Computed example of a mutant assay.
Amino acid sequence: MKVEKGDVIRLHYTGKVKETGEIFDTTYEDVAKEARIYNPNGIYGPVPIAVGAGHVLPGLDKRLIGLEVKKKYVIEVPPEEGFGLRDPGKIKIIPLGKFRKSGIIPYPGLEIEVETENGRKMRGRVLTVSGGRVRVDFNHPLAGKTLVYEVEVVEKIEDPIEKIKALIELRLPMIDKDKVIIEISEKDVKLNFKDVDIDPKTLILGEILLESDLKFIGYEKVEFEPTIEELLKPKSAEEQESPNEEQQEESESKAEES
């Protein structure tokens, strides 16, 4: 069984820098711990993706096409298809005074985040500090690097409902995907999140990304409940002040106990 563009799969991978062998990303928890890149808040295990949808780096994404399920491969990704070539124009000189005003003492190797004039935030790494000037490199740390991925397509998901659940898992990993009510026809899908406990702002972003993913795998009409418009609508003063049923029951229970 080979992977095709538009397939929803579960992928295990470990990414390394070719020149040094340094591991920078992995779906294996034990590998992450050994490489000292383990994130206690991270989610490990084979990641669900739609092939060709841009869920992984472009150079890896296109090389997944044609791979066989359950086989292991080593894939090399050149810089221009990974994190890009190094751009000398992204090395900036910043007055030392700007750092001091923010209470930051810069030193070589320090990772910083600065806000540009248009309000965009950029992450960079301090290269040198000299004569009241700080050289900061805003290139991605892996820019200019050839990457090597060890990959295994663990599963190619065929069932339409399971495909949608996998994409929900990708975009909203913190929720119980089995609580989402899914209705599908040949070209339409409707997702009901009303039984899911999630922050509205997170759900708005999740719905936007899910709509794009679901249309990529072939659905023409995607509906959500609640809709993005409903989530964006400000609550009235009455809605904000009125307690929900659980709060009412809790208050009544405390009153009876006292």
Rank of each mutant, 00 (worst) to 15 (best):
G59E: 07
K121N: 07
G82W: 00
I91G: 04
K5G: 14
G15Q: 02
Y13N: 02
E150T: 14
S130T: 12
T202P: 14
G84L: 04
K254W: 10
I161G: 09
G144A: 01
K16L: 13
K2R: 15
E183W: 06
T20G: 09
L209P: 01
K72Y: 05
D197G: 14
K194F: 15
E229R: 00
M1A: 09
P108R: 00
E155T: 00
K62W: 12
I161D: 13
R120F: 04
T26W: 07
V77T: 05
V136I: 03
L172H: 05
G42Y: 00
G132T: 05
G42F: 08
G45N: 05
V47M: 11
G6P: 06
T202Q: 09
K235G: 15
K165H: 01
A53G: 14
K221D: 09
Q248W: 11
V148D: 08
I9V: 09
P160C: 03
V180W: 01
V180D: 04
E252P: 06
I104G: 00
S212Y: 13
I157A: 08
F24I: 03
S251D: 12
S251I: 14
I49G: 04
E246P: 06
V148Q: 12
R36F: 15
K18L: 13
D195H: 15
P88N: 03
E183D: 10
G119H: 03
P234N: 08
E207I: 05
N244P: 13
E183F: 08
E211H: 04
V189T: 07
K16I: 07
E241L: 14
N39E: 11
G144H: 01
E252L: 12
V154W: 01
E115G: 08
D137Y: 00
V180Q: 07
L231N: 02
S102N: 08
K233Y: 09
R133W: 14
Y73F: 01
L209M: 06
R171K: 08
S212A: 15
K254Y: 07
Y38E: 05
E80I: 01
L60Q: 03
K215A: 10
S130H: 14
D195T: 13
L191T: 02
Y149C: 11
R86N: 02
I184A: 06
F24W: 04
T26H: 02
D195L: 11
Q248G: 09
P243G: 03
P108N: 00
K18G: 03
N139C: 02
P78E: 08
Q248Y: 14
N118G: 07
G82T: 01
R36H: 13
V31A: 11
P243M: 02
E230H: 03
L96K: 01
I184Q: 08
K101L: 06
K190H: 08
D25V: 09
K177F: 04
K18R: 15
F216A: 12
T27Y: 03
K2Q: 13
E169L: 13
G89D: 11
L167T: 06
K98S: 10
K201L: 13
T146F: 01
L231T: 04
T27L: 01
D30V: 13
E229I: 00
K121E: 03
K70S: 00
K163S: 05
D7I: 03
I184V: 15
N244L: 15
K156A: 04
S242C: 15
V74Y: 10
K98M: 11
A237H: 12
K163V: 09
V180Y: 05
E19G: 10
E4I: 13
